[in-house]
Design a protein around this nucleic acid. Structure first.
Lengths: 185, 185
DNA sequence: GTCTATAGGTGGATAGAC
DNA sequence: GTCTATCCACCTATAGAC
């Protein structure tokens, strides 16, 4: 039984990891269950013994993608070097590597308007991830609430806009403007 | 012939206006051509004598939605009261009316991650609209390039994020933080 | 230019064998 | 739990009548 439980858990995690990568790049309607299951090494029929719908998978995929990106800061909020870690997190967030990542990008940025069009459960998941990140940043930086929200809007908005732009020079201008705004506070 | 040309032009504009409203609310994959044509008072078959594809319509709809929102500022860049008009544009942009509009919202905010998943022609349309708006704001406000881009990221990002959030209190906090950031410069 | 009808393809969800 | 097979609904694009 332990083995079978482990096996089911492993399958579930493979599916979620594949979904996180695919959904953050192509959005809810841009991904189908065949693609997710093929990337997880299974076929479509197996999907419904793990999730009750595509929508439920999407929520789990967002949580997975967000926790991968923010894991260290979340697990070590009172690390004495948290300021440094926040700095690393920010520059990684605004990097070309994040913008052009082949694994899962931050769902708060990559899926912001995609989420606005989905059902309530999905929007509530997005809201919890956003709130959680705001609390982490606030705890680690001791900045005021308004400033935390402003920085998050700049980072999330900057990445989302840069990804939409077809002009690389303009992409860099936007990211650079965002970096400068975070520095001069 | 003049009458027939007018008639075709009117049909085309009805289609684009309907598409602007539907696409900004539901995204590319959330809208089908039947819905657009029904709202324009026609049926599906007529669509392809106006546009060669759904993708082309989406580009036209974005241009239409953007020009509706920014028309005055675009047509009167050197109006002596342009500063006032920019102020009105900003507070309208960050208002609940814009967030919950039933007509077309700003495509730069409402469609930012939707566009990132579409073809090059669509991303280039988005890029031109973004650049055009940046130049208008820069011309009217005489602010530095970095500051113009920062304000645009704050406004577009703020509206996009607020629309994704399921919690009205948090929506208001985000919009309020964005307004405060624009005020103190 | 607009209509009705349909071709041709996709994809979420389920059934039943193993 | 995972597989194959299938149901059924949806949607882009085109054909052909008016």
């Amino acid at each position: 039984m332990a083995w079978s439980k482990d096996h089911k858990q492993q399958s579930r995690e493979k599916i979620i990891a594949a979904a996180a990568r695919l959904f953050t790049h192509h959005g809810f309607d841009g991904v189908n269950i065949d693609q997710v299951m093929a990337e997880a090494g299974m076929t479509r029929g197996a999907f419904y013994s793990h999730f009750k719908s595509k929508s439920e998978l999407y929520s789990e995929a967002m949580k997975h993608a967000a926790s991968r990106r923010f894991r260290y800061a979340q697990e070590n909020p009172q690390d004495p070097e948290s300021a440094l870690n926040i700095g690393k997190l920010v520059s990684g967030y605004l990097s070309d590597m994040h913008l052009h990542t082949e694994s899962s990008g931050c769902p708060l940025a990559f899926l912001v308007t995609d989420v606005a069009q989905q059902d309530d459960a999905i929007r509530e998941t997005y809201t919890r991830l956003f709130s959680g990140m705001a609390e982490q940043v606030q705890g680690a930086s001791k900045a005021k609430r308004d400033q935390v929200l402003q920085n998050m809007v700049m980072m999330i908005g900057g990445v989302a806009i840069a990804r939409a732009l077809a002009d690389e020079g303009l992409q860099q201008e936007v990211l650079s403007a965002v970096k400068n705004s975070l520095r001069t506070e």
